[in-house]
Amino acid sequence: MILAPAQDVLKRNNVTVTGNPHGRTLVFAHGFGCSQAAWNLVAPHFEEQYRVVLFDHVGAGESDLSAYSRTKYDSLHGYSDDVLEILDALDLQDVVFIGHSVSAMIGVLAANQDPSRFDALVLVGPSPRYVNTAGYQGGFESADIEALLDALDANYLGWSAVAAPMIMANPDRPELSARLAASFCSIDPEIARHFAHVTFLSDNRADLGRLTVPTLVIQCTEDVIAPREVGEYVHRMVPGSTLTVLEATGHIPILSNPAEVVAAIRDFLQ
């Protein structure tokens, strides 16, 4: 791995550092379909006690789109290399890496590559493989992933065609909402397609058993993306891991039920 200069890395991944500079470091990594904004309702709760690092994966949010390379990011290793570069650029050791959805597996790969950087891992809604295969239920067939790509196409075509939103949460300042949405969750359509491919067609089951870092698995009730069985599989395969099952449903508890996620992380850190 050729390391990019620190400033370039921090700009490339739109890295932000907030919170208590003397506290332990928590690194939050967002999943597919959004940016670091996905942690807006969780990360601020840790700022008093911890140093909080947030970043956008290349292709998401305000990352440097020109840094996107189809060859580098054709596997999750491209993203996990970026995580290690960010830790190196900030000269961080012993971080707690908190990854949501696909970033849970990105954290696993990074921690396997360089365990010395990691104190602990928190995996929120992890899935090492989304597609069913012999002896393993990931929850989806490969045709379903193709259907997701169709859904992406259908929606990006719609977005580009629509100029004025029909419903506005902040009618006084519509430009604000629109701008925030654009920066919060903006993803380049072509990159999103490729990222979807890489995310939902990867198989990283073999990497779970190699983890040597204390790990918390946070599993939601009724998550169609990462079903309960998958969370239990991850827990079983990661040596010495802890499993916490939330009452929250769906795949995005960090936004739909942030309080429960904050409590689970706090419990684990203490």
């Binding site: 379903d144 949460a169 925030l180 939902f200 993306i225």
Partner: peptide, 25 residues
């Protein structure tokens, strides 16, 4: 299934952050 994946990864996140989503297919 394709819509499940899209809804859970994209729709929900934008909805919470922006407060609304429109014309999601």
């Amino acid at each position: 299934a394709g819509s499940q994946l899209f809804y859970e990864t994209r729709h929900v996140q934008v909805l919470h952050l922006q407060g609304w989503v429109s014309e999601v297919a």
